Structure formats: structure tokens, C-alpha cells
Simulated scan of single mutants.
Amino acid sequence: MHLVERLIGEETIRYFDFLIEDHNLPPVPDNHRPHLVEAAMQVARHRLPCQAVCLAQAAVAGGLRCWPRAPLRRPTRLPRALPMTPRSPSGRYLPGTCS
């Protein structure tokens, strides 16, 4: 297996684990971990990295539908937000504030 494929597969697994933890889903059981690794390596072999990320997100979204007790976010984590750019009442950017 090529180094790039291995890196994409490992990064997909790391991102999948992060999403599971972020959404308070139960972790992947140890007996299912080899199947996850095999699937991630197949994705890395045949798909682009952005497609691997989308597949990980879709898998976690499916888990959220099956696990209704999982809250959408951890209560201690603040949502990520972009800084607000000042705007006029008409909704246009104020002069000198937009780069």
C-alpha cells in the first residue's frame, strides 16, 4: 500500500473517531475496529480525500439517526463562529471594514 493511501485512510479513521466523540456517540467496539480500518483503506485506495471525509460525515449522520439519545453537541463546547463584520442597517458592509 502506498504511503499516501495509508495516510488518507488513517486520517479518515481519526476524523471519524473525532466526529463520534464530538456527537457523543458510543465508540467503535474493538471487535469492529478491523472492519473500520479495512473500509477506510479501501476508501483511501479508490476515492479522493474529500470524498473520504464526506463518507465519514455520512456514517456519523447515520449513527445519529440510529442513536436518538445522543445530543447534537457537547454542552461544554462552544459553537465555532466567524467574527462579525460591521454592516449598515441596509445590510451592506461599512466602508473600511471589509478586506
Rank of each mutant, 00 (worst) to 15 (best):
V28S: 13
V28T: 07
M41I: 07
G63L: 04
A61P: 01
V53H: 02
M41G: 06
P49S: 11
C54E: 14
A70P: 02
V37G: 03
V28G: 06
C66T: 08
H32Y: 09
P71D: 04
A40S: 07
V43A: 13
A52K: 01
E38W: 04
N31H: 13
P29M: 14
V53G: 00
H23V: 06
H46N: 14
A44L: 09
A56R: 02
V60N: 02
R65C: 12
V60M: 03
R45T: 08
P68Y: 03
V37S: 13
P29F: 06
L64F: 05
P34K: 06
A61W: 05
E38C: 01
W67H: 15
M41H: 14
A58E: 11
H32N: 13
H32V: 09
M41A: 09
N24F: 01
A44T: 02
E38H: 10
H35F: 11
D30E: 15
H32P: 00
P34Y: 08
C50K: 13
L48H: 10
H32A: 15
L36W: 12
A61H: 09
A39L: 09
P68H: 01
R47Q: 14
R65H: 04
A59S: 06
V43I: 10
G62C: 06
R45I: 07
L64I: 02
H32Q: 15
A40N: 00
P34T: 02
P71E: 05
Q51Y: 10
A40R: 03
H46M: 15
H32C: 09
N31C: 11
Q42A: 15
A59M: 07
P27W: 07
H35W: 06
V28K: 03
P29D: 15
D22P: 00
A70I: 00
C54K: 08
D22N: 10
V43Y: 05
A52Y: 02
P71T: 02
L48W: 03
V53I: 09
P26H: 00
D22M: 11
A59C: 08
A58F: 06
P49G: 13
P68T: 05
P49H: 10
A56C: 08
R45M: 12
R45K: 15
Q51W: 00
H35V: 01
P68L: 07
P27S: 11
A40M: 05
L55Q: 04
P29S: 12
H32I: 13
C66S: 13
P29W: 04
N24H: 06
P68S: 12
R69C: 08
R47V: 04
H46Y: 09
A70D: 03
G63V: 00
N24P: 07
H32G: 08
C66E: 15
C54I: 12
A61E: 10
Q51V: 06
M41L: 15
N24Q: 13
A40D: 00
V43K: 02
D30P: 09
A59Q: 03
A58P: 00
V53Q: 01
L55I: 02
R33S: 05
R69G: 13
